[in-house]
Structures are given as structure tokens and as C-alpha cells.
Amino acid sequence: MTGAALLEIRDISKSFGGVVAVNRCSMTVREGTVVGLIGPNGAGKSSVIDLVTGFEHPDSGSVRFDGTELVGRRPDVISRMGIIRTFQSPREWRDLTVIDNVRIGRSNLARESLFRSLVFARGLRREEAKETGEIRAILKDYRLDDVRNSRAVNLSGGQKRLLEFARIAAARPRLTILDEPMGGVNPVLGERIGEAIRDLKRAGSTVIVVEHNLPFIEKTCDEVVVMDLGSVIAQGAFGDLRDNSRVVDAYLGNDDE
């Protein structure tokens, strides 16, 4: 519970065409924790994720991951440092098979060089075949093994969510950022997703979850960060925050959530 700081966000700000989305936001995420990021709609939660993962660049401030500055780096570079994120709706490579989707999560990038793919094709295929057992174990875990050879686009919405978690499990990131993993998910699948997040933690990943579903946050997260109007207004254990008047105001005063 008391690991070193893995992600340090210091005073980042971002405005889109005059509208301030993130305003001098700072937070620290310690290694090995599951942190819930909550706040009313428009609080800037998704913007913070975009800024951390390089999909947007902050106007000012700094983001450090394990001591390395992330600001100014491309999303793929940040990902290679060990950060995987999701989006509000599940994204899959629609015309690839389910097993290929997970393989891409697992795959080491050197294997995808044009030269090696051309010259050492057979060796690469053997390497991949060796991994198949591991990949299928992950697929079984997420109940996708039966559909592993069909196109990802044919999956149901819930299966696509699970595929996303299977991919993350294969990628084994140091930091996982989940943007509303419970959006539009039924209760039974919700249970499974909570389980998946605990699995990620057990496997050694630090997790940030953006979510509106407070009971889910309470059950899953070690710590909660509350945002409103683009900045962090509170950080701490869920139970402590329930009585924080600013948090209650943010949720009840500005929004109907």
C-alpha cells in the first residue's frame, strides 16, 4: 500500500479554445495501488488521462512516470514505458481475430520490424507458436477462448470489454488507466470487471480508474481522487471523503449525480 510514487502530476493545465478543462491539477499515484478518479461530468477527468498518455499536450505543468518526464512525448512512446489506457467505449482491431487482438497486446515490438518479418519469418512464427499457450490461458480467463478465431467486430459489447482486459493482461503494463470501464455494463459483467481490476493489481500493475459508479469505486479502490472544475479537490480513502463538504458540494451542487 505504501509503494513509491509511480505517477506524479504537477500543476498541469489545459484549455481548449478558451475553455479551461484542466486547471493546475496535481496528484500522486503510488506504485501498487488502485486509485479511483471521480468527479462530476466535465470535471476534467478524461482530459487528465489524455494529458498523461500523450494524446493531448498540457499548456503547462509536468507529468512524471517513475521519475521520467512524460510531457511532450508521443502516445506510443509513453505506452512503451509501461502505461496502457482504455477509452470510454471499447476499442478493438475489428478485422483481426480475437486471438490476434490479444497477441498484439503481448507482442514484443522488435518482432514487428519489417526486416525481421521478411527474413526470419519462420523463426518468428515459431516464437509466436510458443506463446500461444499463454495467450489462450488469458483468453480462457476472460471467457473468450471459444471465439478466439472470429473477428473482433463480431463480439458483443460485453465481450469487447473483456477483450480489452485480456489485452491488458497480455501487455502486463506497470500502470493501467481505465476510462469508465463500467459504462453501459450490466451488473454481472460489472462483477467480472471488478475482479479483472483486482487481478491486474495482483499481477503488479498500478491502476487508475475513472468511474461514476461510486459503490464500485468503494469496493475496488484503495484510494480516491476527486476532481472538480479541472483540479483535484480531495484525495484520500473513500470513507474519509464521504464527509468532505467540498466533495459533496461538487457532486450535489453542480451536477445531478
Binding site: 498518455t53 494524446f55 508521443r74 502516445p75 506510443d76 505506452s79 512503451r80 496502457i84 489506457r85 482504455t86 477509452f87 476499442r91 478493438e92 482491431w93 475489428r94 478485422d95 483481426l96 490476434d100 497477441r103 498484439i104 497486446g105 507482442s107 515490438l109 518482432r111 514487428e112 520490424s113 519489417l114 518479418s117 521478411l118 519469418a121 518468428l124 512464427r125 509466436e128 489485452r167 501487455a171
Partner: peptide
Amino acid sequence: RSPFGRMVRAVRDDELAAAVYGRN
């Protein structure tokens, strides 16, 4: 058939997701 071909198609299908998984 190679990992390269698979990656190119992944980038085609969803380049945001491909970037999330470290592909340039």
C-alpha cells in the same frame, strides 16, 4: 502473415488503440 503485417492491419483498424499499445 508476419507480425509486421498484423501490426499494419491493427493500425488500419484502430490507430488510437494501436498507439495505446506502443505502435508508432
